[in-house]
Design a protein around this nucleic acid. Structure first.
Lengths: 356, 356
DNA sequence: TTGTACGCGTTATCAA
DNA sequence: TTGATAACGCGTACAA
């Protein structure tokens, strides 16, 4: 809590407070410097082929010399486009979205677009706010996570004519274009693998299913798989907590201190599962000998638990890259947004074993 | 690689391509609707106390009814401020910066500022580009990671009058305001703990020290601690790799397959250490019985390895929050940026033991 | 191929 | 307390 602070005299010498922002070079400055009009300079940047070669060279040299950079606000106002894509993700705290977002950003950057990232903390109200903010900042398109949100948000997008692509989700019946995977089927497949090992008493650690449709879908997947084997809801011990390592650990302790405790604990994602692994270690439970644990997402975390976490691999990078391509095509060439379903696959590492 | 695609007819029906962006309500629209001037409406948003109460109520109602949101470009151009802070971080791929950035974002959001995040991939050239981009987008201030970058970047910031705060680093002799911790001293302290356990043959897995000054400082810390005990550089086996779980694992294998292998492997951060843990497991080496491993940063990852990773705790959240406060104060009230040194502390979990 | 001139939506200055 | 009005910097018809 206590922080050492530099002596003031030394510290402020490092950042002389500006008196009156030094004004940036403008299009006019560049134009003056090489005796052309602002229109020509503008064209050099936006349509170089519509300018004479020698003129262009001269102008570009002047731009370089002056360190000119276009004023974003002016450009946004004049052109109505910002070459910006916004993304609202639930959280930056854990790495669930990191890899996908990085790929998304790379794809956008290659196409000359800038990414604006905002996070909502899984709060629909905050998400709506962030969408509004990004829209008002002139984002040309938006990437949102999941399907479930207030109709008002979709209305806003529609009213603004703002293209939005949903990610980390795919459902055949979904009313909005999305790129992602079938959370229900993927988790059901994993549940099948668990049931194949003879487990009949299943614990499930989930994130809040009311504000997180991926969480809801994954839970539905487990239930579907169990139902297909004639198991009832009573055979599933559900524990709902916010995403987090520590919350996952707590949930695991709760599940395992009950009478008739589960032989396998499935988790809504790898972060929760990692917490469960830690709790198992602390409880002196061997995984998978005493209890099996599974995750979902296959983020880095899943490789470093011991043993490695059995989970569902999600094609993060592919999803991010494809989302970028799709949004760029939509914005730059009016190509329609098309829903895409990506494959997932089970990753059997070491945390799933036969029921004791 | 293969992705299922919806039948086109179904897919495109979901995103009717807009023909001509529906124009947004403007200040003028709001003004017309309640018979006042645009100036009054503007004041209602920016200085509510300078407007009569009933007028204000009427205007705010109209704003709500029309779903008006200010045009960012116009506002930026007219006011010269954007209420935006930019951050350029080396990577979003792993969680090194996640927690600090989340706190930073929360702090900014509370103060009514928006965060723009860009990442550089540890490439100084890309970082310079991102700084330029953020500047041209009207960022009022910038958060950058570490001290080491081209002078041209600092020149650009200065020329623009753009306040910048450096984070994840603190050095008494640094020429720019920074909020962070002493990487050298912190790693030296950890190295002391390792040496106290009798280790004399140390392996060190580092990130590239030429483009990453935090990595360089941490390495320097280890060297300093060893020198103080009369150990030479020859007692330190150095392996430099890019940050990553898998690269950390490879580096560990390299170190441990040499003759006269180290009894302790220190890592430049937790991500590398987590990779090393995985490799140790695969090599059948018990930690810390056969080999000790240490990390740095104390990110989530450090809690889920087994045993838990001995590492250096960094006050991510505190750093992010303080950075946000400082930049907001600088931008909103012209308060000078002051360098702040935050404390770190050793976290002894289970991966450091006595030398065999 | 190049230049002229207007408008984009907001803030801020000044006057009422 | 309110209103009229001049910037702000750029893109783009339209004209030359």
């Amino acid at each position: 809590m206590q922080a050492l602070t530099l002596p003031l005299s030394q510290a402020i010498s490092q950042d002389t407070v500006t008196q009156g922002t030094p004004s940036q070079p403008t299009l006019q400055d560049v134009a003056d410097r090489c005796g052309v009009s602002t229109a020509t300079v503008s064209r050099c940047l936006n349509a170089p082929d519509r300018v004479g070669k020698d003129t262009r060279d001269r102008v570009l040299a002047a731009i370089d010399a002056l360190g000119y950079a276009p004023n974003f606000g002016a450009r946004l106002m004049a052109a109505g486009r910002s070459n910006t894509i916004g993304a609202v993700i639930p959280t930056m705290e854990n790495a669930i979205f990191a890899q996908g977002l990085q790929a998304f950003q790379d794809g956008l950057h290659q196409a000359g677009f800038t990414l604006l990232v905002a996070s909502s903390g899984y709060d629909p109200q905050v998400e709506a706010d962030q969408v509004r903010t990004l829209a008002s900042r002139g984002a040309d398109g938006l990437l949102l996570i999941g399907q479930g949100r207030d109709k008002a948000v979709y209305d806003l997008l529609h009213a603004r004519g703002l293209p939005a692509l949903l990610a980390w989700t795919y459902r055949a019946d979904a009313p909005h274009p999305a790129i992602g995977f079938d959370n229900v089927a993927a988790m059901a497949e994993l549940a099948d693998a668990v049931l194949d090992q003879g487990h009949r008493r299943i614990g499930y650690i989930s994130a809040d299913t009311t504000t997180n449709d991926r969480a809801a879908e994954r839970l539905a997947g487990v239930r579907a798989a169990m139902a297909r084997r004639g198991l009832s809801d009573g055979d599933l011990e559900l524990c709902t907590v916010p995403y987090g390592i520590e919350t996952g650990a707590q949930a695991f302790r709760t599940l395992m201190t009950q009478t008739n405790r589960p032989t396998a604990v499935m988790c809504g994602n790898d972060v929760l599962a990692a917490g469960a692994m830690g709790a198992a270690r602390d409880l002196g439970l061997a995984v998978p000998k005493d209890v099996s644990i599974t995750g979902f997402d296959d983020i880095e975390l899943a490789q470093v638990t011991s043993p490695g976490l059995t989970t569902v691999h999600v094609p993060h990078a592919q999803m991010g890259a494809k989302a970028a391509d799709a949004l760029v095509a939509r914005v730059a060439q009016d190509a329609p947004l098309i829903s895409v379903k990506l494959p997932t696959r089970l990753v059997m590492r070491g945390t799933l074993g036969p029921a004791p």
